[in-house]
Nucleic acid binder design. Sequence first.
DNA 1: GTAATTGTCAACCTAAAGGTTGAATATTAT
DNA 2: ATAATATTCAACCTTTAGGTTGACAATTAC
Lengths: 115, 115
Amino acid sequence: MVEYKSDENLSRLLKAVSDTTRRSLLTQLSQQGVSRVTDLAGYYDMSLNAISKHIKVLEKAELVTRKTIGRTHWIEANLEQIKLAENWFMELKSIWELRLNKLDELMKNGDASDD
Amino acid sequence: MVEYKSDENLSRLLKAVSDTTRRSLLTQLSQQGVSRVTDLAGYYDMSLNAISKHIKVLEKAELVTRKTIGRTHWIEANLEQIKLAENWFMELKSIWELRLNKLDELMKNGDASDD
DNA sequence: GTAATTGTCAACCTAAAGGTTGAATATTAT
DNA sequence: ATAATATTCAACCTTTAGGTTGACAATTAC
């Protein structure tokens, strides 16, 4: 059996950004900076509750943080977390390169059967 | 209303890689190169059919390509497509940077109230 | 030609995702 | 005190996701 990296976090993160509305929210937050839930909801043709839920998903993926002051919740993007995804993509590419390099070597000295 | 970039493709791609098994399949394919469906399925504690489905999802996201020769289907990773995701992350970060720079400027010459 | 192999397709099941609406909870304004 | 505002919670609905099993179709091996 293949070893599953314990990557629930990565799954959560990628699932979070795989939704158009949530990606849009992150863009919005990156442009506008810290925002209230109601403000964010204003941009979308969707109930406040739906947006509230989306924000919670982003929060669990640690893509945003929340600071509650009185009755208003201030939401802020946390782009740090995105590195997790980027790292995975980079790793995958390097695995790919590795194989190609090995192949290349094998082609060059087709006689020497090592490994 | 916020403008949704027509990014169904990106959503499909991110959704595809948000699943652990499918990420693992991509890793496998990057390491082993072109593989048959049955070979891939061998690594997982899951029915062949399930893996077949996963591969179809990857295929629709254009993360893998398929070449059918006789009864066997040869699957190959297509890392090109991953750039789509990477671009989105980069864009997001630059949007973020942009705002921070503006803020910075505003702080420096707090008098000049333009924009 | 009969049997085995490689895959998909279709039907089904269960759980999760994305929305809705209607309270409920806290906080602030009048 | 009462009303308005900001948000979440809970219950519900519908669609999608991920898995299973059982046929089926095509190709290859004996």
